[in-house]
Design a protein around this nucleic acid. Sequence first.
RNA 1: GGCCCCAUCGUCUAGUGGUUAGGACAUCGGCCUCUCACGCCGGUAACAGGGGUUCGAAUCCCCUUGGGGUCACCA
Length: 498
Amino acid sequence: MTRRPLLARRPAMTVRVRFAPSPTGYLHIGGVRTALYAWLWARQRGGQFVLRIEDTDVERNTDDAVQVILDAMRWLGLDWDEGPEVGGPHGPYFQSQRLDLYRAWADKLVEAGHAYRCFATKEEIQAQREAYEKEHGSKGFRFRSPWRDRTDGDRTQPHVVRFKTPEPREPGEKIGWDDLVYGRVEYPLDQQQDFVLLRHNGLPLYNFGCFVDDHTMGITLVTRGDDHLVNTPMQLMLYDALGLPRPQLAHLPMVLDDRGKKLSKRSKDVGVAVLDYRDAGYLPDGLLNYLARLGWSHGDEEIFTREELIAKFDWANVGKTASRWDKKKLAHVQGTHLRRLDDADLGERVVPFLRQRGLEVAPNDPRLLAAIAPVKLRATTLADLAADLDYFFRDDDALEYDEKGKRKFLKPEFAGNLERLAAIVESAEPFDEATLEAATTGWMEEAGLAMKHVAQPARVALTGRTRSPGLFETIVLLGRERAVARLRRGAALAQAVA
RNA sequence: GGCCCCAUCGUCUAGUGGUUAGGACAUCGGCCUCUCACGCCGGUAACAGGGGUUCGAAUCCCCUUGGGGUCACCA
């Protein structure tokens, strides 16, 4: 195999990495991990992160789908230095706008004798395939074009441009590379076929477009999923044919669903679309932290801020094994990030989720900030947070009661306790937790009541739920007037059951 | 099937010839306790199998098995 200049001998250059999604209607969570590692690498090394849209499959792509990608990347905070809407010196960043470039490179390859115009029809190819299969079985067919060594075709007729795969110069010759994740990877050269560069309509195929773009955009490290491992020899042959320096390569193991199957839209219980996580109230940093740890590790550390990820990420500690999506671990990591945010920040973020519930609350409302502190210990996502904040902002008469809680605790036998507690709340002076608790426990001791017999009915009356922050904390957060009203309303409801 | 990749607790992983195989999530106990969480303490739980190499193998080599990927004028 031809020896190209080794990367190590090239002058030190700034890191240029890219993420090249295809606009399919949603941004795949597995793709995001690939993007994340590339982004982390660029940020750590002070390089550039390029976003390129691979939209040559016209039938599958839509404009809206591009916007989905951009929205998702922005939400995640994976900002790009070059690409859609920000431009850059190597644009355009949509493959559909680079068709002239592909044509020019294809011409260059044809002129240099590394590619040829193939006028074989689908029928011819099919006939050859059938003849092969008759003799060798249904697998391993490689098309040998009669046009491989001809240059007399009529260019005005429909044709494709095929790469002229070099013949092995010795039996068993391989083409390979040193992968940053997998180490040495090699494929037998004689297994490669004359793959198509340009379709009859002039649109480039993946391997060709990818090569032209990566090269002309100055990409120094190509990152992608390991499902692309088999594509790499084709792209490398293109670099080699033209004597161009190869980029470094890093293939990432797949992210599988919870059953160990390739993650797809059909995977149950696993959201593959990034924006779904946004809508479900996940934090970008929580999702990114989980994703980073899925396939990469840094000793025993589990929780990383974005800055820590940038500082600590390295290719040496990226594993080779496919990993499964674990919703529960994601929830844990996400919850940890949620709890670490300060109350004011959470206030800003939770407002849209409250609005979804029909509650208009100002992000700087002191009542909101006060309630967030205890509630965030009980939430995983912003949606959870909003749900647990709900009863603090719901009108007293619009409070909804958990059915089971109501049945169990808003019963006649507790009505008296609720009335009594209401009286205590009404008269407690000063109105604070300590005073309320002292007054309540004093009464309970006299009456021989256990806390749980008072607290649970009161909790349902005050919040409609069977779980909430501490009783006295909740009362203070609600305020004297609303707490009393809710307790009395609860007492009335309890009485009415009879 | 050909080719390629992979293989440590249920899951994510640490481990790079000598460790009681560590951590995290989950799970199971316990503490805290007015509920639910948070937090804290503790337990169960893994080197796929077989051959080598070596004084010594989770670590190196081979085979088997298992899993995954890919075989387009999709990406």
